[in-house]
Design a protein around this nucleic acid. Sequence first.
DNA 1: GATGAATGAGCCTTCATTCAT
DNA 2: TATGAATGAAGGCTCATTCAT
Lengths: 236, 236, 236, 236
Amino acid sequence: MKRDEDATERLLAAAREEFFEKGYEAASLRAIAERAGSSKGAIYVRYPDKAALYEAVVGPVIEELYARMERCFDDFGQMDPAMQRTEMNAYADRGIGWMVDFLYDHFAEFKILVCGGKEDLYQRFMHRMVELDSATTYRYIEAVGNDAVTSGRLTPEIMHMINTACFTGIFEVVAHDMGREEAHAYVERLCLFYRAGWNTIFYSDYDVSAGVPKPPSDPATADELKRLVEARGGSP
Amino acid sequence: MKRDEDATERLLAAAREEFFEKGYEAASLRAIAERAGSSKGAIYVRYPDKAALYEAVVGPVIEELYARMERCFDDFGQMDPAMQRTEMNAYADRGIGWMVDFLYDHFAEFKILVCGGKEDLYQRFMHRMVELDSATTYRYIEAVGNDAVTSGRLTPEIMHMINTACFTGIFEVVAHDMGREEAHAYVERLCLFYRAGWNTIFYSDYDVSAGVPKPPSDPATADELKRLVEARGGSP
Amino acid sequence: MKRDEDATERLLAAAREEFFEKGYEAASLRAIAERAGSSKGAIYVRYPDKAALYEAVVGPVIEELYARMERCFDDFGQMDPAMQRTEMNAYADRGIGWMVDFLYDHFAEFKILVCGGKEDLYQRFMHRMVELDSATTYRYIEAVGNDAVTSGRLTPEIMHMINTACFTGIFEVVAHDMGREEAHAYVERLCLFYRAGWNTIFYSDYDVSAGVPKPPSDPATADELKRLVEARGGSP
Amino acid sequence: MKRDEDATERLLAAAREEFFEKGYEAASLRAIAERAGSSKGAIYVRYPDKAALYEAVVGPVIEELYARMERCFDDFGQMDPAMQRTEMNAYADRGIGWMVDFLYDHFAEFKILVCGGKEDLYQRFMHRMVELDSATTYRYIEAVGNDAVTSGRLTPEIMHMINTACFTGIFEVVAHDMGREEAHAYVERLCLFYRAGWNTIFYSDYDVSAGVPKPPSDPATADELKRLVEARGGSP
DNA sequence: GATGAATGAGCCTTCATTCAT
DNA sequence: TATGAATGAAGGCTCATTCAT
């Protein structure tokens, strides 16, 4: 008998739903089979165990994201240093924009990954992305002759942690069930936020407070703020 | 029979170990009772269910951290605006330094919280911290008359998300089993990183690239970097 | 709650029945629990797994048999050599007679052991009995100064195998569901049979055919036999 | 499609290995099909169920052994009584020698049969061999006019049981993984052992102790024994 | 004939929780 | 209060067997 591709689809969809609703541990293969309208055995014909089914749901999406990032970073790495400096921000913005859309095109999968409670796969995924980003950053640093590494400001550990923090910050949009448009806005801001942050690492004499304006003495602004904040429910 | 306080302690210690080693779902009440040298019943006398025991392990530590943060933020909020501007960074640095130590003084509990797989409590905890921080930030913005909110650069959602990302970035030290000293160094850098980031939000005319030096044409730096990177194993 | 000894008994009885009827592999813990009128969990409170339950059914009986044999062999080994020679046969007969009764007093257990399909325990049991018997035999050989070992007629391997064969021969009564009285008669004969056999090992110049009478030329005997055999159904 | 004889062979070989390694119950048809490089369906085309496959592995070997025994016993039965008496031992020795070789030429099959945990087939096989032997023995008894049956010393049940014990004793070589040469030596001894045993049944006035030498007073033998036994590790 | 997907009963085991003692 | 026996649902998984292709 030919394997029923339709049933495979139904199974994956059912698994996606079940993992989404209950998390990895609490999800039940029995329930997934029932949701899919087939038998427990049908799962085991396709996947050796629960973890493999989980990976079948979430893995391809991860791989696609990773592949896209890889291509993106590669393209960037092959530009000449001058152009890298010029284009980096634009590149990053475009990349991140695409990423947010990808996250929302596969919202369930990423939600499962981020919130599903099966940490190993998520951490491996995060680790790989972080390593990829780190490698590209090292290459950039080398290409443009930056001293962040040689000066000791940027150790591999710090690189790894900060990149992890950056990606995690982006993935928050999934954890918080933010809407797609809002997410774009947020992530755009976050990029700027990070960009400034990275400057503290790239440039030893970067002045964090440079450009910080003098305190506005205009009371009107303060009043407007007060109104806005109160409208929000007053928590602050 | 009088409730045996000693047994309560043993129970909590046993639970801490079990949750730490296995995570929430995989932890077994039977095993905890055995570790503590008492019975499953002893658990149910004290806590209505597994989740309550978990909370008993992790809750007090959370509460203490929260209380400390609250006090800290309150103190800050009661200073006059001029002083807030002057002292903010010092305040933050001191607070964060203390926090890292607190994390390491209660490493097991935070590890459980961050990696233990019981997301609800962690998220609630994170949410509260974030709200506290957000409230303080709103108050600060109001006090100093900043236009981040009025200008629309800082919506409540963005505030929430960025603060979440910031705290999460700090908590990475636990997830990554970083050593205490290293963690201090990392978090210090991270604070600078965030500080710069926040400026992009506070100040509309903040120039991210201000102070970014011209590309160094000194080839010596590039060469030294090359050597360092190669010594690292060549991953970049 | 005090453990319900009654339930334990019912559980063991149920297990005994189930193992007896279906063998180890095919026996189901579910069925055993149902037979005993309790829950599957009740089994696991008492025994860590299926194998342990099996052993709880069959082990004590084995141990008692073994202990009795040990005492018996010890007593024999402490007699002086002359007496050992005189008494050996009587000792053996008594011992074997008791053993047959023991077998029938615990028929189900032995049936399970011999036919139940869990070979490891049976083989360990058999091995222990055989070793015990072998040790005693060695001591006897030494005590009376027999040359079976020194001459090479009796190697440890042959000793082991023949003893195994002997015990197995006795246990056949269980495998064949022979009646108790019949079993006594059979085992009695078997002892004589073995006794003669052992002489071929103990005594190098033992003449197997000694005492074999000349062929009876009495045709009456042959006729009577014919009738008897035909009455049996004629298979021979 | 024509049935692939090669596949049949591969299937049988795979089944032999699987049953050999895991026993009947634990053997899996899936594993067998995989070992054979074909499908589960291929098994069901050839054999109606697992038991039939088992029998296909083990049956032909059994049948060949049985057929050979039958021919052997027939030949013997057709000799005239006088010759039977003269030749019996030589006949038996030759037969048993051949049998041991046959056992080792088909070691896996017999190991499966004896230790594989599917008792029914083994018992049926044993039963048939025993009946064949019994029938021949009856014929012999009749031919030579022996009184074992008429006297009541040898009932059908005793006949059956003793023959079972004898064959089982021989099959021990398989259960114990004895080497072929060693097995020959052991079985040779066992035949002598049994021969003496049978005399206790054939001859009412057979004196088991006849020819048993007086106790050797030679202390040298005892000493030598002591050394040998100690060299063995002292278990006796 | 051959395949292997599908089935679904059934396996042993673990678990949090209840409750009699 | 403390115990731990009892529960029974649910877990993941394996299996021989069936049958559409």
